[in-house]
């Protein structure tokens, strides 16, 4: 894919476990295993809603402002809110410094993430307003767009904006012929395919789907199934993260 320079590291080892051949990844994960995931909601005091999401070494901060008055005014739509979305990588988030100016990649990802969110946010409840969703990739280790959309939907929920469902995302890859869940940067550099997927898990709807790379048709079907399972797990973690914040708030209130 990215075609990393230099020697290709060993990414998949085949080990005997309980009499079965099992593919073990460079970081010890199994093919269908997620990285350690951490989520925290309400991390910024100025934003109406915010969330920090980590998928292994990938760390994304999302903040939501709004619904608020659309600026400039002519941008507002009479029958719904406009969603303004920015996916951006910090200059220090990557191995080589990334220019802070928006790249073509960031323009595209901002678009596909916005389109994914449009499908779940009940924009018709907030006519003539703007909902601003800002995502900053603080550290990049693969799967940044899916971590970003997971964080964005948590931030929207934290802002109290009505949604049909949360959005959870994960990238599936094909590494040395093996389909793997939650691909990281080293794997992505040498992968035959990288497929980010985001879904509204409870509705069973696909909101974001891209495939960079090559898959046979049956591999694609398997990859979708792998993504769906991963997304269900992430969805549970999202609900826990939201509950964690709001349960605490209620308890504090009780003490007073």
């Amino acid at each position: 894919m990215g075609g990393g320079a230099g020697e290709k590291p060993v990414l998949i080892r085949w080990e005997e476990r309980d009499g079965q051949k099992v593919a073990v990844r460079h970081d010890g994960r199994l093919a269908a295993q997620l990285r350690p995931i951490r989520m925290e909601v309400g991390v910024l005091s100025n934003a109406d809603g915010s969330a920090l999401v980590e998928y292994g070494g990938t760390r994304v901060l999302a903040a939501v402002y709004g619904p608020r008055e659309a600026h400039p005014r002519h941008m507002a739509l009479p029958d719904r809110a406009v969603i303004r979305c920015r996916y951006h990588m910090a200059p220090f988030s990557t191995a080589e410094r990334k220019t802070p100016a928006p790249t073509r990649r960031e323009v595209e990802l901002s678009k596909v993430i916005r389109e994914a969110l449009e499908a779940v946010v009940l924009t018709e409840l907030f006519p003539r307003t703007a909902i601003d969703v800002y995502m900053e990739v603080l550290q990049s280790d693969g799967g940044t767009r899916t971590a970003a959309i997971t964080a964005a939907s948590l931030a929207l929920a934290d802002a109290g904006i009505a949604m049909r469902d949360l959005v959870a995302g994960v990238a599936v890859g094909k590494v040395d012929g093996v389909l793997v869940l939650d691909i990281d940067e080293i794997e992505d550099n040498y992968a035959e395919a990288d497929m980010p997927v985001a879904m509204a898990p409870n509705l069973g709807r696909v909101l974001l789907l891209q495939l960079n790379g090559v898959l046979a048709h049956d591999e694609f079907v398997q990859a979708m199934e792998l993504a769906r399972k991963g997304i269900q797990t992430i969805y549970k973690l999202q609900k826990e993260a939201l509950r964690r914040k709001y349960v605490e708030v209620v308890q504090e209130g009780d003490e007073q």
Partner: peptide, 25 residues
Amino acid sequence: DGRIAGIQKTGMGDLEYREVLSAVA
């Protein structure tokens, strides 16, 4: 040779899981 060389879902809105599979087929 009939392999899938890329996919992009584009535009607002969503697809059901089975719709994605049939679209690709």
